[in-house]
């Protein structure tokens, strides 16, 4: 016996229950449209008046633009050697100075952003998709599958990322694809766990039960009814995860386990800067600024989005 709620509006989403015509008795279609549009406007306004969210958005756009347009923005070839002018300070020819081989630091930072973007975009989106699918299956599938997947997630999560990376690189040698694989493998479980919890809370709600009683397949239920309700928080989580991924890449490259030379990465710039910190301190600063800005940007953006789109969040967090 499936318990059916008597409540006229759906408790989770607040969407009014509908009758056979597809609309509740007391509202017209135009009114619903108007209400939804008003809600969108309110959310947009609250986003635009949130200075942190706006700063975050600007920083994120800067990050994307500088990485995508690096070949046009960079004043020099990032790998062109110019040993006579090595370790020069910031000047008109080299706005952020040069490194030990006379390569232009600004160009290397711009190209380094491409590596960061590549890892963040592919790493986060792939792990998001896989994590979402696995999490929904775990939350919706049979109990034994749920336990099995949970065990798997927790096993992977128990590995410290950097140590796992160190061990893997020792076996395979450093490369960007290894970094990418490590990022994906270690981030899947956290998305999966969030997706699983959200799916579990939805699993016994009326609209899902109704869908199932109408004979919808599991794929259809998951894809059309569960996913739209789960994916929102996950996207915000992903936005906040980008800086983590960027710093993991930078960290591994700093340790010499990420990109291989001569490719520039923020991590290698930091490492090279660290080695000459007493001779040329601006290199560490120049390499650190984009990392700080990216972290701040995505964190601010993610938090602002969460505040606005998650009704359960109170003010002042």
């Amino acid at each position: 016996m499936i318990p059916v709620s008597e409540n006229p509006s759906e408790s989770e989403t607040g969407i009014p229950a509908v009758d056979a015509t597809g609309l509740p008795d007391h509202v017209t279609e135009a009114e619903i449209r108007e209400s939804a549009a008003r809600e969108h406007r309110e959310k947009l306004r609250s986003f635009l008046t949130n200075w942190q969210g706006l700063t975050g958005l600007i920083l994120v756009i800067l990050f994307f633009a500088s990485a995508i347009f690096a070949p046009w923005l960079a004043p020099y070839d990032p790998n062109a050697l110019d040993v006579p002018s090595r370790l020069s300070g910031p000047n008109l020819e080299h706005l952020a100075g040069t490194d030990q081989l006379g390569r232009d630091t600004l160009s290397r930072i711009l190209y380094g952003g491409r590596v960061a973007l590549y890892i963040a975009a592919i790493g986060v989106s792939v792990s998001l998709v896989i994590g979402l699918i696995l999490g929904m299956i775990a939350g919706f599938g049979p109990r034994w599958l749920d336990s099995l997947l949970l065990l798997l997630f927790d096993t992977v999560r128990s590995f410290p990322t950097i140590v796992l990376a160190l061990a893997t690189v020792a076996l395979t040698g450093p490369s960007l694809s290894v970094v990418l694989a490590i990022v994906i493998i270690t981030s899947i479980p956290q998305y999966a766990r969030v997706a699983r919890t959200a799916t579990l809370t939805l699993r016994n709600t009326d609209f899902i039960l109704a869908e199932r009683s109408l004979g919808a397949s599991m794929t259809r239920t998951l894809l059309h009814h569960v996913m739209p309700n789960v994916v929102g928080p996950l996207l915000i989580l992903a936005a906040m995860d980008v800086p983590v991924v960027v710093t993991v890449e930078a960290g591994l490259s700093f340790l010499g386990l990420g990109v291989t030379p001569p490719t520039a990465s923020w991590g290698t710039i930091l490492n090279e800067g660290y080695l000459v910190i007493r001779d040329a301190p601006w290199m560490v600063i120049a390499g650190g600024i984009p990392l700080i800005l990216t972290t701040l940007g995505f964190t601010f953006l993610g938090e602002a989005l969460r505040d606005i789109f998650d009704p359960r969040m109170g003010k002042g967090r």
Binding site: N79, L81, V83, L101, G256, P261, P262, E272, L275
Partner: peptide
């Protein structure tokens, strides 16, 4: 070897 001077040398040889 993964140390500063050798890595710089390697990158010059690479170029």
């Amino acid at each position: 070897l993964n140390n500063q001077e050798r890595m710089l040398s390697a990158q010059i040889i690479q170029a």
